[in-house]
């Protein structure tokens, strides 16, 4: 089990993957709105999406796990 974590404080604007999807390194997974800018988080790892820990509109902090891969 590996997690894709946030690297910035902000609000989840869009989740671009769903449970069961295959994610490859370099793929865009989540858009976070921080200080009125949209920051696209890119996965550094690959795997199958097992769980999504957040919903759109959630506030997340730096290092919070967002997506769990296996």
């Amino acid at each position: 089990m590996k997690s894709i974590c946030s690297n910035i404080d902000g609000v989840i604007a869009e989740i671009k993957v769903k449970v069961g999807d295959e994610v490859i390194p370099g793929q865009e997974v989540v858009d976070v709105e921080s200080m009125k800018s949209i920051i696209t988080l890119v996965s550094e790892i690959g795997g199958i999406v097992r769980e999504i820990k957040v919903s759109e509109g959630d506030f997340i902090g730096e290092d919070d796990p967002l997506v769990i891969l296996e």
């Binding site: 910035i8 404080d9 902000g10 921080s34 200080m35 009125k36 800018s37 920051i39």
Partner: peptide
């Protein structure tokens, strides 16, 4: 502004 001067990424904290 609270942002990275090169990447323009916001920098809350």
């Amino acid at each position: 502004y609270a942002e990275d001067p090169e990447t323009f990424r916001p920098s809350p904290g």
